[in-house]
Computed example of a mutant assay.
Amino acid sequence: MSAPLEVPRLSVGERFVLRAWELTDLPLVEEASRDEYIPLISTVPSPYSRVAGEAFVRRQWGRVSAGSGYPFVIARAEDQHPVGAIGLWLRDLDEGRAWIGYWLAPSGRGHGAATESLRVVARWAVEDLHIPRLQLCVEPWNVASQRTAERAGFQREGLLRGWQQVGAERRDMLLYAMLDVDLPPAEAG
């Protein structure tokens, strides 16, 4: 077990913020639980119940307490309404690697939240946490997520055959990575 972490609040431009999970985020968990895909690639409960939703949020807190990663809610800056999640997972940190995963509830898609959040988490991980390699996996059919990764500066490295259990089957994944030397320069603001 690693030392407990603290999830920082990160600004994602003027439109979004990244923050720690709260029990007030249960409507996001409920919406995500109705998505066909999110419960297959995450621990979002399906079917949803208030008890299962609260257990999901508490698991996020447990990950922070255990030092295994930084689970963020992606929320609109103007009203703090949650639209998705992104996490930086540290299981391979001793090898100089960290994993990133993200999802958006259906109502949060199409507004650039995933791309901008991924850019911010990547920059924070490289510049503040000094992680030399960030990686993420995307299913080959998920073109929108591939575009998100590429727009955020990640490079496709290859196909991992039968890499991950998704639902009842093992599926291929595309591996994307960003090295600390690949980090695009910060935009002047």
Rank of each mutant, 00 (worst) to 15 (best):
L174H: 08
R161L: 07
L160I: 04
Q155F: 11
Y176E: 02
V166A: 11
R147H: 14
E157P: 03
A149H: 02
A168N: 14
Q164Y: 06
T148S: 12
Q146N: 01
V166S: 03
Q164V: 11
E157I: 07
L160T: 09
A168G: 14
M173H: 14
E169M: 07
R156Q: 13
Y176M: 10
A168V: 12
R151H: 13
R151M: 11
T148D: 11
R156N: 07
S145G: 12
R147N: 13
L179I: 06
S145C: 09
V166I: 15
A152T: 11
M178T: 02
A144V: 13
L174K: 02
F154K: 00
R156I: 06
R161D: 00
R171W: 08
W163F: 13
A168I: 09
V143G: 03
A149I: 08
R161G: 01
L160P: 01
L159M: 12
G158M: 09
D180A: 15
M173R: 08
L179Q: 05
E157N: 08
L160E: 13
L179W: 02
R170H: 15
W163T: 01
R156A: 10
R156S: 04
Q146S: 15
A177I: 06
M178N: 01
D172L: 08
T148M: 02
M173I: 00
R171H: 12
L174I: 15
D180S: 14
Y176T: 03
R161F: 01
V166H: 13
G153C: 03
A152G: 04
V166M: 03
A177L: 05
G162C: 10
E150F: 10
A168C: 09
M173P: 00
G158C: 12
E169W: 12
L175I: 03
L159D: 01
R161V: 09
G153M: 02
